[in-house]
Design a protein around this nucleic acid. Structure first.
Length: 364
DNA sequence: TGCACCCTGATGTT
DNA sequence: TCATGCATCAGGGTGCA
């Protein structure tokens, strides 16, 4: 049976929350920044409202550049925890529309898929009405707007929600999928970024339409079986992946920019200890244990290096994480002569923890 | 030889 | 010119039955 999937994307989420909290910001360019702590403007734009976007400011852009483009913008630091709490209440509203609790999938702080095949009676006109109800409820309860896409699968629903932004709604019925995809640029296909686009262009493919008719074997030869197959199917609008509740990610990580480029272990350890505490906080909140640890190093030449280690047994405490992190930092500094710019730590292979485990059990 | 697991860098997105 | 923070994936390596 054909499915009916809704994708909801909150409009310029962080900046919209700031506007909601402080209505005097309305009508002004609002830019929410992740500051690195180096100097006043070092950092990148997390998100910004549409007034700022009109002038070319976008997420990922250096804050200093955003400031140069539009100096009278309101620059605010991210308040991630607060936005998360707002996200929880919005997701609760959306979850209520799913056919069942398993048919709801939150994919990020401000996006979710909802399978409404049954509630909509498999009818896209009915789905449109449900989508409008969702938007109205979010506006009333949370004071925020969102953009909605409706399609026969997650891929199409996700892409449909980008058609009319902000505060829009777009329905792509199964028989409209081909015409919907045809004129779009490759990077509009969810999952294709700059790198994949360039590789496809080298093969003479520059539109989704060309990708859809390209020989699948050729794509597999270049991209490998998994990605090659995916590219072909995605270009045809085919996506069988189910909407399903995510049991939390399989890893918990934190990264930070060091106050200055350095090889000084005292400074690096100090920053790493903060990251370790953050990660362990999340590990404990989720009541999970970790079995592998990865440390990320970004050197001054902007290259990324990782070192990882898998434990014999799952762990839950910070001392294990801290000790491993220090060992790996020391090891990396012996291998690489560059200064470090940023560091990160990630606990992975998460599993439901069964009580605390002491450090002694991990001494190999 | 086949499989499972591990390590690492690439990728996408924000 | 300046360049955050995060999760996920795939390829290659390694050890074992």
């Amino acid at each position: 049976m054909e499915r009916v999937i809704i994708h909801v994307d909150m409009d310029y989420f962080y900046a919209a929350i700031e506007e909601r909290e402080n209505p005097s910001l309305r009508g002004k360019a609002v830019v929410v920044c992740m500051y690195s702590g180096r100097g006043e403007t070092s950092g990148s734009v997390s998100t910004c409202n549409y007034i700022a976007r009109k002038d070319g400011i976008h997420s990922g852009m250096p804050c200093s550049r955003a400031k140069a483009i539009k100096p009278d913008s309101i620059f605010l630091p991210v308040r991630k925890e607060f936005y998360s709490s707002v996200s929880d209440s919005v997701m609760e509203i959306l979850r209520g529309y799913a056919d069942s609790s398993e048919l709801f999938e939150q994919i990020s702080i401000d996006e979710a898929f909802i399978d409404i095949t049954r509630t909509s009676l498999n009818d896209f006109e009915q789905a449109l009405i449900i989508g409008m109800q969702m938007k109205a409820e979010i506006r009333e309860q949370a004071g925020l707007t969102c953009s909605v896409g409706i399609g026969p699968n997650k891929l199409i629903a996700k892409m449909a929600s980008s058609v009319r932004k902000p505060d829009g709604i777009t329905v792509i019925k199964p028989d409209e999928v081909g015409n919907f995809l045809k004129p779009l640029k490759l990077t509009k296909l969810w999952g294709i970024g700059k790198v994949t686009e360039e590789r496809l262009q080298k093969m003479g493919i520059s539109t989704i339409e060309q990708l859809a008719v390209h020989d699948a074997v050729d794509l597999i030869t270049v991209f490998g079986k998994s990605k090659g197959t995916w590219l072909k199917k995605a270009a045809l609008g085919i996506d069988d992946s189910p909407v399903k509740e995510r049991g939390g990610s399989d890893q918990i990580g934190r990264m930070a920019t060091l106050p200055q480029n350095t090889r000084d272990t005292d400074m690096i350890f100090l920053e790493m200890d903060r990251l370790v505490d953050d990660v362990i906080g999340k590990v404990n909140t989720r009541k999970v244990s970790y079995r592998s640890v990865t440390i990320t190093f970004i050197t001054t030449d902007f290259r990324t290096h990782t070192k990882s280690r898998t434990l014999n047994h799952p762990a839950t405490d910070s001392s294990v994480l801290r000790q491993i992190a220090r060992e790996m930092i020391t090891g990396f500094l012996k291998e690489d002569t560059h200064n470090l710019r940023r560091i990160g730590i990630r606990a992975a292979n998460l599993q439901k923890s069964e009580g605390q485990t002491s450090l002694l059990e991990f001494v190999d």
